[in-house]
Amino acid sequence: MHELLIIAGVLLIVLNIAAGLIYVERRLLALWQDRYGPNRVGPFGLGQVIADMVKIFFKEDWIPPFSDKAVFVIAPGILVATLLLTFAVVPFAPGFNVFDSNIALLFFLGNSSLGVYSIVLGGWASNNKYSLLGAMRASAQMLTYEVFMGLSLMGVVMMADSFNLTGIVEAQRHGWFIFPQFVGFVIFLIAGIAETHRVPFDIPEAEGELVAGFHSEYSGMKFGMFFVGEYMGVTLVSCLITILFFGGWLGPAFLPPVVWFFLKTGVFICFFILLRASLPRPRYDQLMSLGWKILLPLTLINILVTGAVLIYLQ
């Protein structure tokens, strides 16, 4: 019974945050562009979330006759499913997680790799040149950035001596990992943005060039699932940054641990939106060369140095 409550709670929190981000992102982007954003529906425009949801549910859900129908329908589901599965291992507070896995970090990395399938299959099944180009870019980008996304976390794993996220948070009682693992943090942040393909790494979508990239042909709630999936990805990466580098739920005792966790996560979600408000999109080849020529060597050096220091201290 207790576990069922936690599962329901996590689902409720994650889906509500993902839906609420539609509103939060529009308001914050407006704030940083000296506008107001949606402020008409309900108090502070909060009803905009409901209005958007109602709208997207009632839109025509068109499956193109030229598409590969089965794959076309499954693709957005894969994205949401993998992301929701990953949230199963995220500890929001001590004891407040669905599944306390001892390989939680590997589980996250594996699931985020599976997420690529959603985009590649979606772009392929759309049977549309722009979608295919978007999917190709997405697969190349996500495969590239996955390599050192995993590697950048190895420094944290070495210092915490654990793949268990709860264990990693507990290991930060005497200092957050952001200080010794600053390079790892920066690289994980960049890779995380690329994994969720948010601006500035949104070249799979690139609405200026590719209509809407891999989801050009999607409409109605199928598009909505890609949309919500993107926001869930942002939430997930923010949660993981909090857990891995900023001490998770740890904080001064005047606030309960869950509040600390969500405060820290919220800061990173806002940072993701700030990135979108301020940075332009790099060219495709610039993105790839940044990944392979700069970030990958940096990650490897980071692992080497971390390992050497750890051995020296032993």
């Binding site: 704030l31 940083w32 562009q33 000296d34 506008r35 107001y36 700030l274 301020s278 940075l279």
Partner: peptide, 18 residues
């Protein structure tokens, strides 16, 4: 720098006329 300048816009006056 561009991140910082964009962030500073949070404290600017909004241009929109309601």
């Amino acid at each position: 720098r561009s991140l910082w300048y964009t962030f500073l816009h949070a404290f600017h006056k909004r241009e929109t006329i309601l």
